[in-house]
């Protein structure tokens, strides 16, 4: 060491950027490493494989009488499956779209050829309560659909919001008719 004391003065000029680069590379590598470690931990809080595996539910429609509905559980949420009467279908189809809070025709909310079945996620779009109205004896509100007991939101027979405070129509779950009397949700 003592023999190499004479450092060429140019060395000092390049010293600073070189040191900066080293620091940048070090910090960047450490940050990438920390991210790579953090991701598995964060992702472990996402739905696990067994939770995802339970994400489809089959429903037999035959026992549901016209005018009434049932509630089934899908991904921990209530799903309303309701058998509409011809009058309910007609009132849902005939309403002018400009009267709706979130305009959407009934045809977009049911499956073609199965217009008597309205299937919605039974969670009020206001603050997450479960609206009443599946049973004919429940209060169904002014539009004959569902009535939320928490803050008085009302939905029509197509599950569209007609009276606030809820801002949006009842959401639709992904589902398909496997036969005329059986659906698969999810």
């Amino acid at each position: 060491m003592a023999d190499t004391v004479t450092v060429p003065p140019v060395g000092h000029v390049t010293e600073a950027p070189r040191r900066d680069l080293l620091k940048l590379v070090t910090v960047a590598s450490a940050a990438i490493g920390a991210g790579a470690i953090a991701w598995p931990l964060i992702d472990s809080m996402n739905p696990s494989q067994d939770v995802l595996a339970l994400s489809a539910t089959e429903v037999d429609l035959t026992p549901i009488a016209e005018g009434s509905g049932i509630t089934v559980l899908w991904r921990g949420k209530p799903i309303f499956v309701r058998h509409r009467t011809p009058e309910e279908i007609k009132s849902a189809e005939d309403v002018p779209l400009n009267q709706l809070i979130e305009p959407q025709p009934d045809s977009q909310r049911v499956k073609p050829g199965h217009t008597q079945w309205i299937i919605v996620i039974g969670i009020c779009t206001h603050l997450g309560c479960v609206p009443l109205g599946n049973k004919p004896t429940d209060p169904r509100g002014e539009w004959g659909g569902w009535f939320c007991p928490c803050h008085g939101s009302q939905y029509d027979t197509s599950g569209r919001v007609r009276h606030g405070p809820a801002p949006l129509n009842l959401n639709l779950p992904p589902y398909a008719f496997e036969t005329d009397t059986k659906i698969k949700i999810g």
């Binding site: 598995p40 931990l41 992702d43 472990s44 996402n46 696990s48 494989q49 067994d50 939770v51």
Partner: peptide, 13 residues
């Protein structure tokens, strides 16, 4: 065992 098989990256953790 569920941590090992079903939880995302559970085996790693």
């Amino acid at each position: 065992e569920r941590i090992m098989r079903d939880v995302n990256y559970g085996w790693l953790i």
